[in-house]
Nucleic acid binder design. Structure first.
Lengths: 254, 254
DNA sequence: TGAATAGTGTCTATAAGACAATATCCC
DNA sequence: GGGATATTGTCTTATAGACACTATTCA
């Protein structure tokens, strides 16, 4: 192709783009929803907000927002999390896109779901907020790919109704966690910067909903090189204190 | 809540929905793109079409389409595959959603990417079609999470230019394949109904781009229970014929 | 008969689970 | 000292890789 014809082609493309009318086609709305998950006392919890408006008024939903026209999906998810819950700078990863035509009664809304992980202590500010935002215990009794119903319970153990298809999103988020746990360093996202190996084991057991062998867990984690001892120890724990470790970014696990 | 107030609430919600105006907000366009992958002669190939229109004219792209307003994402992906390539009824699974604001020069287009797997022999009809649709050798030199550049080559080994961010989609599709291979029965999707264990091993080696030990591969597959012998054997292969197996749907792999 | 690959048996290395013994801190 | 958990060591079991050997078909 000559330089001349290249220039011709370029301008033809520019003319095409200039005359392109995106409004000719009807479009769905696009939102992001974020499943923010943490672990406390051997229980997985998710951050939910009670809806004050129609539709699905008074049901509990994941923090979400519509995607801005000039905004990437990742940025939209980060913005939803920040503006609705005050949390930012944490692990956030795309999960799955939900697009059944009737999933939102208002209009066609396609939702790109994300999941986020955070150490519980970073959320303590939220505890003092209104009861519109709550950390809610979630229960995902799925064995393999799918399974029983996802349940969300408030502090009194009362079951909460989830809006839209958000129960399904939560279920898939936990399933993804379980699947990635053994080959991606995600357990650390739920812990403070320094932690004991037993803390980490507890996190794994909470996510998998299954006891793990202490000895081999310890060996496996240490052998992975993902963790380095700090030389510091727990204090005032009423028993022999365990050494504190920290996560070593970038180490490749086997 | 009394029956009366429930009814009140219900009608309030209906009134809200009736007056909801979805056109108030500007919206992105939403498309699906499908990475159809097969394996031939130890090489992974993808089905690509040469673009005849702007933008990205003459570059090669994945079959795709805009999502209909009343159509689920899965159905849209299935439709794109069927109408653009004539293939249907095959393995199709959502991959990831791509949404950078500038990924399409026309307007904001968010693309929900899918990947599909099919046995090469089901595609033979396509070989006779125009050269606008081609099965193209793809090369994904990624070690772990990310890595080198994805390359697509035509039959003469000439490198093809890929449109939009479709190289990235192909790379992620192959990465997903590699990750799922050991715990999901996806190798079978690339084989005919009856196959030898060596055929299956070849598929695994092609996907992982890595030789596998014959003995332990055999043991592992047989132990998984995912495969049952048919009692039939290869014929006229110039050496001792191997037994043909078939995939046993629903067996759980350890 | 020889080429070529299928299929089987055995040994070794590695990693996880089970169990036990010892170490250390706090009360 | 006693309670409680951390940390280390050893044994057993399951699995993957390496290697060698036998089996079977076809040219």
């Amino acid at each position: 192709m000559t330089k001349h014809s290249k220039k011709q082609k370029k301008s033809a493309e520019q003319a095409f783009l200039a005359s392109y009318d995106a409004s000719r086609f009807p479009k769905p709305s696009v939102s992001v929803d974020v499943a923010l998950i943490t672990a406390v006392d051997g229980q997985l919890k998710a951050l939910l907000t009670r809806r004050e408006k129609f539709p699905e008024k008074d049901k509990w939903s994941l923090p979400g927002t519509f995607v801005g026209l000039e905004e990437s999906l990742d940025i939209a998810a980060e913005r939803a999390l920040r503006t609705k819950t005050g949390v930012s700078g944490i692990f956030l990863e795309q999960l799955y896109t939900f697009g059944l035509p009737q999933r939102d009664p208002r209009t066609r809304v396609i939702s790109v779901a994300y999941y986020a992980l955070v150490n519980f202590e970073k959320l303590t500010r939220l505890q003092t907020q209104s009861d519109r935002i709550q950390l809610v215990e979630i229960d995902v009794p799925w064995d393999g790919e799918k399974g029983g119903q996802v349940r969300a319970k408030d502090k009194q153990g009362k079951r909460l109704k989830l809006a839209f298809d958000h129960a399904e999103i939560l279920g898939l988020a936990v399933l993804r966690l379980r699947g990635k746990l053994d080959y991606a360093p995600i357990g650390f996202e739920l812990l403070p910067r320094k932690f004991t190996l037993r803390n980490l084991q507890r996190i794994h057991e909470t996510i998998l909903n299954k006891k793990k062998n202490k000895d081999s867990f310890r060996r496996r984690i240490l052998a992975s090189g993902l963790v380095v001892p700090t030389g510091e120890f727990e204090v005032s724990v009423g028993h022999r204190p365990a050494e504190l470790y920290r996560f070593k970014r970038g180490a490749i696990r086997k």
